[in-house]
Design a protein around this nucleic acid. Structure first.
Lengths: 211, 211
DNA sequence: GCTTCATTTAAACACTTGTTTGAAACAGTT
DNA sequence: AACTGTTTCAAACAAGTGTTTAAATGAAGC
């Protein structure tokens, strides 16, 4: 009954808590008391805890993936207009840029990105697959586009390098306020967006390295 | 009293289960029944569950870090003998090679590496810091060595690129049998060690990219 | 044999977990 | 105003959690 309806309140709180503390540590009672709703309302609206996670993921990831897919298609179409191959840089940018724009769009979105970054290496297979299943199609689309952008790379090499790229991106997505290793020399006034430009440089050099 | 003593049996089982299912999911009862020891023996020998994790980490990571540190020092010393700067490639190899040799030394070691890879992005700060605290010194050593190997790179850039590298390595460490995205075209007969050579190529290109 | 110490054992502890229940409150429609 | 279907609520459920306890067992020294 407060500002927004119960279902949304639950989704927002769960998103934040899952990102901050992890899926398994976060209890139903913590979620419901944070959301100021009744304990049973999660089971009423979502069935069980795992379906709530699924709902948290889908709410953000389906729209985000749509944007990413459209951006990649756009890059391919523009290249075709110039009867040229799309560049790896443009393709990777089409994948990463929407992620980062989205990340900075709200605090909830920032939580969500952290959640995704952490969950791709989740030990619990059921939880991990919730994310992998939704990310796989866009990953596959990017892979095929990059394969035609980098025809000299073998399929196997491109595939493993894409795994490396996902690892790098995950690392960045997991960063909340501070880098992985803090209390370092100076160098901490690196703002997040600077790191983003650096990210593209880094993975582009990696994927384009001689075989 | 079986083959090995209780303490070691607990450490072995915990290592395997923590890597496979995660720290929080794994219960004391699962550990003790797998190890075929009494439930209370964990608290007797280690105090509590978290101290057990600490023991699991230290048993492997302290010796491994010693090897890594020695390898890096060796590279620096050899370069000095030739009155030259150490190369970034040699330094990164000195960091990665021991990790992978260790990883293939036993199934327990393989479990352990998975555990480390996953835990560096653990949501639970207490758990995450167990790992970060032990890895930070070697990270810092590598950073300083790389800074002198790549003097044209600003400190800030090197630092963020080292974060990317850690992300890439983590991703590889988390791979157990299969890559992050399976059921792919063909390309799966990529053996693990092939991926390792590829890893060095990838991160080397990334860290040496123009600023 | 007896004592002393470290270790193992079964049982219980207090607490938290996700989920279910059935009644209460609410909204909308006729 | 009375009935409808939906949503909220407090309470309870059974199961699992990490940890503690006190008795039993083991081995070592004198």
């Amino acid at each position: 009954m407060p500002p927004v309806d119960t279902k949304t309140r639950i989704l927002d709180s769960a998103e934040h808590l899952f990102a901050q503390d992890g899926f398994h540590i976060t209890s139903m009672r913590t979620i419901t008391s944070t959301a100021e709703v009744n304990l049973a309302s999660i089971n009423y609206h979502f069935g069980n805890k795992e379906s709530l996670l699924q709902a948290v993921i889908e709410r953000r990831l389906l729209p985000l993936n749509k944007i990413r897919a459209d951006e990649i298609k756009k890059v391919i179409a523009q290249a075709e207009d110039n009867s040229a191959l799309p560049t790896a840089k443009a393709l990777l940018q089409a994948f990463i840029d929407p992620t980062l724009k989205f990340r900075d769009s709200s605090t909830g979105a920032r939580d969500f990105i952290t959640l995704v970054g952490r969950s791709l290496n989740e030990p619990d297979e059921t939880v991990r697959n919730c994310f992998l299943a939704l990310i796989f199609p866009i990953f596959e689309q990017l892979r095929q586009a990059l394969q035609s952008a980098l025809p000299h790379l073998s399929q196997a090499t491109l595939l493993i390098r894409l795994q490396f790229i996902m690892g790098t991106i995950n690392q960045v997505m997991c960063m909340r306020n501070e880098p992985l290793f803090k209390n370092q020399t100076q160098a901490n006034n690196n703002h997040y967006n600077d790191a983003m430009q650096q990210l593209l440089q880094f993975i582009l050099a990696g994927v384009e390295a001689p075989e």
